[in-house]
């Protein structure tokens, strides 16, 4: 099977589809709900208030230092659930495969998904596989949807953010985007720089236990911290003020930014969390972040203010003040 590739027939529902399912997918994801191989998974042990989310993954390249598209697909959905204040329970896996994708690659991606699901304590209980013609899907696309149970006593809502709260960040910025973008533009990174992609459910449960009045949690993926802060400032109608000196960025990530003209505040992260916490619970929340292996460099980034509602301001290293605006979209290298 070493040099086998995905064929159109693997998605046609016949013998080859069955082979793909039995040979690759089931061995990777096997669990009681999935193994029934029914049209859908029957989830009989959920209770209380639920959270539900979905996301699609199309990253290029499919493999990058520290991870692959499968790791993103599980962690991304786990984290989206976690940010609502939920304990993630079940996710789905929709695969859109391009004809010609090596089985070896697909196997590695599925194995990564399995490992991440195990770490996050969730099961992949339903899914779908389609195959499209060569040249139509960059290898593969993945969609995952997830269900989680909301943690009792929490109420995560951007509109709960009030002036005077602390803004916490669970670690360094831009590791994921720098890792993916560097390769595209001929840059080689030192070995310790890799995607920060990680499941944050356990960290979030720690934060919510330590700081039950946490108002809002967000993972700064596309658009980075700049986008998240602007969205919260807008919906909560508070000002947000952060300090340039507090922003944690690894030197090599800053190096990528300097070379290609990027701003770390706008770069995507896949294993970071921003928390808006009442000042009196901020230290406890920070300690909880630091207890997680993914929160070692957690910090207090700034605070919310009554002044300038809807605006994100940054106090610069030399003591100036400027606006941090919503990023514009596609991140491309610039020379000027």
């Amino acid at each position: 099977m070493a040099d086998k590739t995905v064929q159109l027939a693997h998605g046609a529902g016949g013998k080859l589809s069955h082979e793909l399912m039995e040979g690759l997918i089931l061995p990777a994801f096997s669990n009681a709900a999935l193994d029934v191989l029914h049209d859908g998974a029957r989830l009989t042990d959920l209770s209380g208030r639920l959270a539900f989310t979905t996301d699609s993954y199309v990253v290029q390249p499919r493999f990058f230092p520290g991870g692959n598209i499968g790791k993103l697909a599980v962690c991304g959905t786990v984290n989206d659930l976690a940010m609502t204040g939920a304990v993630p329970r079940y996710i789905s896996c929709g695969l859109i495969l391009e004809e010609g994708l090596p089985f070896a690659e697909l196997t590695e991606i599925l194995q990564t998904m399995k490992r991440m699901a195990e770490e996050a304590g969730i099961s992949i209980v339903t899914g779908d596989t389609k195959v499209v013609e060569h040249g139509k899907a960059d290898g593969l696309y993945i969609n995952t949807a997830g269900i989680g149970e909301l943690i009792e006593g929490t109420n995560i809502d951007p509109r709960s953010v009030k002036p005077g709260m602390k803004v916490l960040l669970s670690g360094t910025l831009g590791d994921h985007a720098a890792t993916v973008l560097a390769g595209r533009h001929g840059l080689s990174l030192p070995e310790d720089i890799k995607t920060d992609c990680a499941p944050l459910a356990a960290m979030v449960q720690g934060i919510l236990a330590a700081a039950p009045h946490t108002a809002c949690l967000r993972d700064p993926t596309r658009g980075g911290v700049a986008a998240v802060l602007n969205e919260i400032a807008e919906s909560a109608q508070v000002g947000i003020r952060i300090e340039e000196d507090a922003i944690p960025v690894r030197p090599a990530v800053q190096g990528v930014c300097d070379m290609l003209g990027f701003d770390p505040l706008t770069l995507a992260n896949e294993g970071k969390c921003i928390a808006f916490v009442p000042a009196e619970e901020a230290e406890a929340a920070l300690a909880a972040m630091k207890e997680s292996p993914y929160g070692q460099e957690a910090c207090i980034l700034g605070e919310t203010t009554e002044e300038a509602p809807g605006t994100v301001a940054l106090e610069t290293a030399i003591g100036g003040l400027r606006i941090v605006d919503m990023p514009l979209g596609a991140i491309v290298p610039r020379i000027c």
Partner: peptide, 8 residues
Amino acid sequence: SLSGVTRE
């Protein structure tokens, strides 16, 4: 090399 990031 800039901060360990290298390019040709």
